[in-house]
Write a protein that binds this DNA or RNA. Structure first.
Lengths: 176, 176
DNA sequence: AGTATCATGTAAGACGTTACATGATTAC
DNA sequence: GTAATCATGTAACGTCTTACATGATACT
């Protein structure tokens, strides 16, 4: 459905999709090229997308078919989203009591920096959106969700760094 | 590492871990029981956790070993977290231009409600934390991240509902 | 001429889900 | 006594990653 969503927006090749997965969609959906290419062939075989001839360097862009569009609409209107998530940054924070406060601080600082950089990139992408067409307006929804989640992670990391600063060291712990 | 993190906090059985995955950790890490049980056996075979005898109803709690703790510390201090995420709610928002604004609104409203309920649950869990021990203090970091991300999703959904209300209908679109 | 980037793939193995199966204890 | 919940598992199948492989075009 992620591939179908991207291709519905505008025709894309497997390579294009890989770029999106490394860029905008890194916080939304991600797959590696080795999964994308066979999956595109499968979607084409099912008639949900169709090859648009061949571009330079063996490039193979796909466009969505009518069947593909109605499949997407069905997915959106008749099925419920899966809300289970995985976030390794937060998972690790549950285990931070096992390391020295200084190591915990180092981890949180590097996460803070990473998310700040990502937020800047996300804002740039938001600027580049064409809000004149429906696809661009929907993409704005997605990017805005990304921005807000990144802001949440940044303020969390800042708060967490302050909080960890008040933790006793392992030594103080055991001696207490 | 998720299993190890949970067991490091306090001894747990596969069933306990399943409860956590359905509760607190739903927004952090998730696995199904059929993956958890064999994985626990594997971790025990590797000496990272150890069985604590058998409880009522065939219950098998595991506790972490010294090796398990140092494995966790290694993971935290020597490896970088994977930042790629998957969020089906946001993915779907990228495709919302394909359905009628009313259907988009319905989707966003139901997401809003879902996240509001989750936030309430998360706040209750935060109250129940024992901040007297290091494990509880680290769990507070994780839960606070959950709270902030849920708040971000809620404010996003509210904003998105207003935004979608300004979208032209498919009909207005095609006639324009 | 050489390096970087564009571009697509296959095969093996690891990870994760679905369907199925079983039994103990508790609450009504 | 019957339903709900607690509790653990196996087997088959589907999804995803890692390692490997190839070639075209653009830039310097």
């Amino acid at each position: 459905m992620a591939l179908l969503t991207l291709i519905a927006g505008e025709p894309r090749s497997g390579y294009d999709i890989g770029q999106e997965f490394d860029g905008v969609l890194k916080f939304v959906w991600h797959s590696k090229p080795t999964q994308v290419y066979p999956e595109l062939k499968r979607l084409a075989a099912e008639g949900l997308i169709r090859e648009q001839g061949e571009g330079p360097r063996g490039r193979r862009p796909y466009e969505i078919t009518e069947d593909g569009q109605s499949e997407l609409r069905q997915w959106l209107t008749t099925t419920a989203p899966d809300h289970s998530l995985r976030n390794e940054t937060v998972l690790r924070s549950f285990a931070l009591w096992l390391v020295e406060p200084e190591e915990a601080r180092a981890f949180l600082s590097s996460e803070l920096e990473y998310h700040r950089i990502r937020l800047r990139g996300m804002r740039v992408l938001t600027q580049g959106l064409d809000l004149g067409n429906p696809n661009g307006r929907a993409a704005l929804l997605g990017l805005e969700a990304g921005v807000r989640r990144l802001e949440a992670m940044i303020s969390w990391a800042e708060w967490a760094i302050e909080t960890v600063a008040t933790w006793p060291t392992q030594e103080e712990q055991t001696s207490a």
